[in-house]
Amino acid sequence: MPNISRDEVAHLAKLARLGVTDDELDTFAPQLDVILESVAKVSEVVGTEQDVPPTSHAVELTNVFREDEVRQGLTQEQALSGAPAAEDGRFRVPRILGEEQ
């Protein structure tokens, strides 16, 4: 099925917020193609099998909850300790172009 073009790689990179150089596009496109080609065989096997529900998790747990009790978190100083930039107790980030969702 796959035949990943440079444009598609560029699109994926954009969705994933990954800057990629032209050189990288040239190397990634064929690599992704090979990988996707080879992993595509998963759909072959399940195509032939009847009644195979998906397993998203090996553990069959349900209803794991926590009581609604406040727990000590981080101080503002700890919270901001790894921040590339901070101002007035907040994380400072470059201007945002997109809209809130």
């Binding site: 598609e8 990954l18 990288e24 190397t27």
Partner: peptide
């Protein structure tokens, strides 16, 4: 985008793109 480009190596980028796809 620029930070993720600079911060991640090729294998990580490949897998992120495979997963995104």
């Amino acid at each position: 985008s620029a930070s993720r480009e600079a911060g991640f190596g090729a294998e990580v980028k490949r897998r992120i793109m495979i997963g995104t796809y």
